[in-house]
C-alpha cells in the first residue's frame, strides 16, 4: 500500500487529505496534500506528508521543518511547469 496521486487518505485521527503531487527526495517519499473538511477540499490546509512503513503498516508524518518544506514546495512548483 502506498499513497497515490488524486487519492484521499484517512488518518487514524480521522483527518482526511487529498494527494495532489509527490516527489522523492533523499530516498524518502513526500506528498503534497490538501485537507478535506465536510467532504470539501480546504485550500487553507495544505500539508506535506512523508510516507513510511512500519510493521507493515503505512504511516505519514506531517513535515514541519521549514527548510525542508521550502525545498519540497520548490520541487512541487517545478513539477507543475511544463517543458
Amino acid at each position: 500500500m502506498t499513497l497515490k496521486f488524486n487519492h484521499i487518505i484517512t488518518l487514524e485521527n480521522n483527518d482526511k487529505y487529498v494527494v495532489l503531487n509527490n516527489a522523492i527526495l533523499g530516498g524518502k517519499k513526500y506528498y503534497l496534500s490538501m485537507g478535506i473538511t465536510n467532504k470539501k477540499a480546504n485550500p487553507q490546509n495544505i500539508k506535506i506528508l512523508e510516507e513510511f512503513i512500519r510493521d507493515e503498516e503505512l504511516y505519514v508524518q506531517i513535515i514541519e521543518d521549514q527548510k525542508l518544506v521550502n525545498t519540497l514546495l520548490k520541487i512541487f512548483a517545478s513539477q507543475n511547469k511544463s517543458y
Binding site: 500500500m1 499513497l3 497515490k4 488524486n6 487519492h7 484521499i8 487518505i9 484517512t10 488518518l11 487514524e12 485521527n13 483527518d15 487529498v18 478535506i36 467532504k39 512523508e50 513510511f52 503498516e57 503505512l58 504511516y59 505519514v60 508524518q61 506531517i62 513535515i63 514541519e64 521543518d65 525542508l68
Partner: peptide
C-alpha cells in the same frame, strides 16, 4: 536529533487507515 527523524512519540506521525480514489468521494 533532527526534526526529520521519525519518532513514535512524535505528534505529527499518523497511521493511514484508508486510501480511496477521489472519484469515490
Amino acid at each position: 536529533s533532527s526534526v526529520e527523524s521519525l519518532d513514535d512519540n512524535n505528534s505529527n506521525v499518523f497511521k493511514v487507515i484508508d486510501i480511496q480514489p477521489i472519484e469515490e468521494l
